[in-house]
Design a protein around this nucleic acid. Sequence first.
DNA 1: TCAGTTGTCCGTAAAATATGAACTATGGAA
DNA 2: TTCCATAGTTCATATTTTACGGACAACTGA
Lengths: 131, 131
Amino acid sequence: MLRAMKPLIHPSIDTITVEGILHALSDPVRVAIYADMAGAGCAQTCSTFLQVVDRSIPKSTLSQHFRTLREAGLIRSERQGVEMLNTTRCGEIEQRFPGLLPAIMHAHRVQLAEKVRPARRSAPAGKARAD
Amino acid sequence: MLRAMKPLIHPSIDTITVEGILHALSDPVRVAIYADMAGAGCAQTCSTFLQVVDRSIPKSTLSQHFRTLREAGLIRSERQGVEMLNTTRCGEIEQRFPGLLPAIMHAHRVQLAEKVRPARRSAPAGKARAD
DNA sequence: TCAGTTGTCCGTAAAATATGAACTATGGAA
DNA sequence: TTCCATAGTTCATATTTTACGGACAACTGA
């Protein structure tokens, strides 16, 4: 029984939704992948990101994350030989939803910076308030 | 057996995460609620939003949506008599993640405007490309 | 043809979500 | 008080989504 390789799905720019983008980027692994990809100057393969995110992530899971990013319209993937070249679609998305991705990427960097150098707190700890 | 009413959880501003915000706003109902709340000048009750979103939404589901928004740090809820007064925490979040919520709200409005007046297409339809 | 590499597909287990029914909490009327 | 209506929550369960191991597909170079 031969299982065929399904073609890659890239939504056209006008069917991309805000909800889809937010959902795709609401996962820590995916937003890390996307941020790295947006920072890179050139197309990158999937396995590149094993070094960016936790190395222990299974490759089937990583593959699913790429699919989610792709089908949300955030990235474009193209098979190049045995590997996959990925690029962001930030240009298109910027036209349709101006400022959205830059703002998310900026917030992501703010949060990353805090993790590296935790801000001193005024209160004992940043716990949730129950009131 | 008396089931106590649990206290409302409001995360402190420095434990709010970008992922949490994006996840909370990646649901069409929740983003509609949040957008309406951000547009309103004053605090609003939960049931107000039965008119904003689909009227057929069960109230238990609506309650869960408010909890999600609250625990992501997007809104503050306060019991006032028999009802609940909700306000956004956009001021705090703007300080921590400048520009994030405005960009998301803007993209949301862009998308809403398209739905009202669908843009004429250059291609027959905005379908996904398989390539 | 064979082996190595990159990534996908599928089945199942685990986690998240939706929702009806029962309940809490509050306020007002009888 | 007691009773009732209203606003929202909690719980149990059904459905949906997600994670991931293992088998496989697609390609390359020897």
